[in-house]
Design a protein around this nucleic acid. Structure first.
Lengths: 266, 266
DNA sequence: CGCGGGATTGATATCTTTCAATGTTAGTGG
DNA sequence: CCACTAACATTGAAAGATATCAATCCCGCG
């Protein structure tokens, strides 16, 4: 169950570290980092009322960050998989601005921000890693934003699934099958869809032969076409595909084709 | 016309600097920073094929970052106003991943990333400023994402307008009226709406008496209610408001009140 | 003064949500 | 080990929101 490639990401900081940072720096990081014991699903790792002191990384399991509206309904902001950092927004705000919740049995590590700062003051390579790390977060965030703003529901789901596949397994050999750590509702919330629509999009992707999905297990049957669907840019490659009529709602059994309008004018 | 509060943001780095950083550091920054001459609207400041060497800040004018899909249609990712930095995603990717375009007559300054790194290596306060700066970008980005994912069209536009108001004028006294540096199409693209829908949302906000808008001039008539609309959380405060039927499309029998447009005589 | 691009408005098609019912799965306690 | 329950997932039908297609309209600009 628990991926044992569990070297603490707090010491790895986004890249091979002892080599880059030097053993003394890693040793100092060790004192700044805390390895937290595993927590149960649903556990809040921090809240917007937790005093800010540290940034976090996932060791194993998975985390979502959410925002609550008055009704207590939550809006999922992002998911964090093993090796990924979260809580970085607190650096600017000097307080946590959202809430981080474990999706599964999850272990995280934390880096005292004060301590980290001091170590970084004396290690330019570490400082550079941190910049790179934060820039990477912005990049990811911006990609997700573009996917949201520019595309329709099926594209967003395709994008999200591919993103999760890429990020699970730490990078390397792109699993054929993944097990999602979150529910349909959570998946949907993070891309601005209701659970029902999310489910319909699963059905749709299934029918199109792009994925197989049963519960939280997803098998990528035709990653290329899925990619094409996620990314209108590549869509032209697989010609008369890119079906549009998606919602099972409008009875049409026809796999209608259209050139896919897409918003973003100008 | 050009806001003369034009102290180069490249030297200010997100906060009062000489005080914090010390004059020697600011002096070194001066050598790392380049003040670029004003460029015409439409000018590309960098492209995804420009070799990465520097990050940018807006001195005056306004900038949009965009991504192109195959058709040459652009998706607006974000807007950048005076004092704001952009191009930060390139740090991670080691190349620019989008394209930055001036919306008006605009001047930017750039900081060589190499040079900046060297100065930061020797100035912990500068390093901290940079972290704060990047964290702030993530925060902003995440806020925009949440607005996108969680809300409907009118809320997204309200959010965007309020965000622009807040950011124009560098922060201080919240202008009653602003002049938008971008078209309806660009505005819409950035929040995932077509130009037509964007225009309809303007009409709607106008009819509701929340704003007056004529062309690119926008006057904030009822900022509180606008805020409430942007943020469902606060919506409960103003009870029986939170109108829902928005698109003029569905024959709004809702007649009468014509608060009329006409923003301040530009 | 006329041109042309952006803005607005209208009518319709399509997509997404909402409300509601049903099916399915995993976890629990007997 | 099985029955049972509660949460999650899927599906359907109708309502609502947004996109698309297509005309104007209007203003800035030459």
């Amino acid at each position: 169950m628990e991926n044992n490639a569990e070297s603490s990401p707090c010491l790895a900081l986004d890249a091979a570290s002892p080599a880059v940072l030097g053993e003394p720096v890693v040793e100092r990081l060790r004192h700044v980092a805390t390895q937290h014991p595993p927590v149960a699903p649903g556990t809040r790792i921090y809240t917007d009322r937790t005093p800010f002191s540290a940034i976090f990384a996932v060791r194993f399991g998975a985390v979502k960050t959410v925002e609550f509206d008055d009704n207590g309904d939550e809006q999922v902001l992002s998911f964090h998989l093993p090796g990924e950092f979260f809580g970085l927004t607190a650096i600017h705000a000097e307080r946590y601005v959202n809430t981080a919740i474990a999706l599964q049995r999850t272990a995280v590590c934390s880096l005292s921000y004060q301590g980290l700062s001091r170590v970084a003051d004396e290690s330019p390579p570490l400082r550079r890693q941190l910049m790179r790390l934060m820039s990477g977060v912005i990049l990811t965030e911006q990609g997700a934003y573009a996917a949201m703003a520019g595309h329709a529901a099926p594209a967003r789901l395709a994008f999200l699934l591919l993103s999760l596949r890429l990020r699970m397994g730490g990078g390397r050999p792109l699993a054929d099958t993944i097990r999602l750590p979150m529910s349909r509702a959570e998946l949907g919330s993070s891309i601005g869809l209701t659970p029902e629509t999310t489910s319909r999009m699963f059905t749709y992707l299934r029918r199109e032969g792009l994925i197989e999905a049963s519960g939280r297990n997803v098998r990528f049957v035709d990653p290329d076409r899925l990619q094409a669907m996620a990314d209108p840019i590549a869509a032209l490659n697989s010609p008369d595909q890119v079906p549009q009529n998606v919602a099972g709602t409008t009875s049409s059994a026809e796999g209608g084709e259209r050139s896919h309008g897409e918003a973003s004018g100008s």
